[in-house]
């Protein structure tokens, strides 16, 4: 048995965000945070759709959006893989701060949407 924690995607079907966007955003987050490295293979569309209990089109659209954003590339026979240079070259210190913030938000009992709203608010306040 492996003790390595696995990378996962969580879907909230009651959330206002469309399911494909939830999948896209989380995969993009994993890629930017380095949890998914260049060359890593994403699951086959049908398999991930089955695991999440959604239509294959939902996952296929998320993959298409990721490909359009230059984060992954799809090749016949190989599948969908994380593209080299797709990460935003985040500094380790910044990444650690992001993780610490996510943990603090969890401890504070904030939902994912509330946490993201908080970040958006902070970005707006800083003039971004």
């Amino acid at each position: 048995m492996t003790a390595t924690p696995a990378v996962s995607v969580t879907l909230d079907l009651l959330a206002a965000t469309p399911p494909y966007e939830q999948v896209r955003a989380q995969l993009a987050g994993h890629i930017r945070a380095g949890a998914l490295q260049p060359g890593d293979k994403l699951p086959v569309v049908r398999a991930l759709a089955a695991d999440l209990g959604v239509a294959t089109n939902t996952v296929a659209r998320a993959y298409r959006e990721l490909e359009a954003g230059g984060l992954v590339t799809t090749r016949r026979r190989v599948g969908t893989i994380v593209q080299a240079g797709s990460g935003s070259e985040v500094e380790p210190a910044l990444l650690a701060q992001a993780k610490a913030f996510a943990r603090s938000a969890r401890v504070a009992g904030l939902s994912d949407d509330e946490t993201i709203d908080l970040v958006r608010g902070a970005l707006s306040a800083s003039g971004g």
Binding site: A6, V7, S8, V9, T10, L11, D12, L13, L14, H30, L36, K41, L42, P43, V44, A47, L48, D51, L52, G53, G79
Partner: peptide, 10 residues
């Protein structure tokens, strides 16, 4: 309503 999938290349 909440579903989680571990990413694995099967």
């Amino acid at each position: 309503a909440t579903r989680t999938a571990v990413l694995s290349d099967r």
